[in-house]
Structure formats: C-alpha cells, structure tokens
C-alpha cells in the first residue's frame, strides 16, 4: 500500500513510519497540514493517516475538509489525542473514514489501515460471502461449513459476517467492539475473546482446518492460508 502520513510529532511519526515500512508499505511523510495537503493533491495514495492537531494555519480536519471538497475520495484515518465521543463524531463528519485515539498499539493501526484500504475495493452489495469451505447467505441468514449448516445466534452471525468481510486481514478487539456491537468503551473482562471462542467452536468444530486464528497481542484473523 502507498500511505501518506501527516503527523507533527517526530517520535510518533518515526515509529509509525518504521512500522509501516517493516510491514511492507510505501510511506510518504509530511509534518504540517500544508505539506500534507500538497502531497495529497499531487499524488495518489491508498490511504492517508492524518493527525488531528497540526501546527500552522490548517489542522487535520481542515485538510480533510479541503480534500473532500475537491472530490478526493482517498480513505483517511484520523489520529487524535481527543478521545471524546463528540470529537470522534466531528472527525468522522469532516470526511474521515476511521478515528483512532492516541496512544494506540501499532497492530491496531495496521489492522485499521488494511480494513480501510480494502473497503474501497468491495463496495458492491453482496448476497453471499464465502471463503474456503465456509459460506454465508446474507439473505437467508444461513451459514454452512463444508456443506453442513452451522446454527448461529444473530450476534454470532454479525460477528462472523464482519470477519468474513475482512478475510485474511487482522481485526482487533476494538474493531469488533466498534463494528459488531457498536460500543465505544473498553469492557474490562475479555468478553470479545469469549465471543470469538464460542464462534470458533461452532465453525471450526470437526472442520478439516481451523479458519479463525488468534493473532497474538493484536486480534483475530479469518484465513484459510497457512
């Protein structure tokens, strides 16, 4: 992926940039809103990481609004020190596609960038999702593994749907919490892990190979690869 990083804090920028490079992405970097704006209009990126508070005459939200105003549809992830739900809403309303509060785990950022870049590719409405021998009928709300029906609760269905839409991508616990349950708080108990293990028991029971993997200290991935 070709990524533009707009971040004024050197330390955080260095860390993000190195991490992204190590993950095999191409990264360009701007330290101010104006530089970021110039780069974003001159080049095409798969995704932009935009710090919200930037020095100079134009801040992160200003850049996003200007880009959206010019018809630029590049996916943008906002980085912010403001965790307030109202601030999140403001950020997303200005044209951002996702909002990540600082400090964050690098795995979280990477997983969200993957999800953002992928979202652009499959926007058409599907009626079935499938990967390996697992398939999901979105209209009949039915899931089968190797031809056998897997009975799922409505919430388990939604969880699996999210995982299947992000096949071969790491999804974090926070992403699941926000997208499957629409909660924006951190449950102290490892509730998500329990939901995942219940789902795993259902879809991977008796299957030839397990599909739902745990990615240590980051989250989960639904994949048929080894």
């Amino acid at each position: 992926m070709k990524i533009l990083l707009v971040e004024d804090n050197e330390r955080v920028a260095h860390f993000v940039k190195n991490g992204l490079l190590e993950a095999g992405h191409a990264v360009e970097y701007a330290a101010s809103g104006r530089d970021g704006m110039n780069l974003a209009t001159a080049h095409t990126y798969d995704v932009i990481i935009m710090d919200r508070m930037l020095p100079g005459d134009i801040d992160g939200l200003g850049v996003i609004e200007a880009l959206r105003g010019a018809g630029n549809k590049v996916p943008i992830l906002i980085l912010s020190a403001l965790s307030d739900v109202n601030e999140r809403i403001r950020g997303l309303r200005s044209g951002g596609d996702d909002y990540l509060v600082k400090p964050f785990a690098f795995g979280e950022l990477l997983a969200r960038l993957d999800a953002l870049a992928r979202r652009v590719q499959d926007t058409h409405a599907e009626t079935t999702l499938s990967m390996a021998d697992l398939s999901m009928d979105l209209l009949a709300r039915k899931v089968t593994r190797a031809g056998k029906t897997v009975p799922l609760q409505p919430r388990e269905f939604k969880l699996l749907e999210y995982l299947m839409r992000h096949t071969n991508q790491v999804v974090t616990r926070t992403m699941l919490l926000e997208n499957v349950w629409e909660y924006h708080f951190d449950p102290q108990t490892n509730v998500i892990d329990v939901h995942i293990s219940k789902l795993r028991q259902k879809i991977d029971a008796g299957g030839a190979r397990p599909l739902l993997r745990t990615i240590r200290s980051v989250g989960y991935m639904l994949t048929a690869d080894d």
């Binding site: 804090n9 330390r11 955080v12 860390f15 993000v16 020190a81 509060v101 600082k102 400090p103 964050f104 785990a105 690098f106």
Partner: peptide
C-alpha cells in the same frame, strides 16, 4: 497523551 504515545511506541 503525546508523551504516553511516544513511550508506548518506543516500547513497542
């Protein structure tokens, strides 16, 4: 948050 972010990123 900024120094915490720096600390966390250094450690990570």
């Amino acid at each position: 948050r900024t120094p915490l972010a720096e600390l966390r990123s250094r450690l990570e």
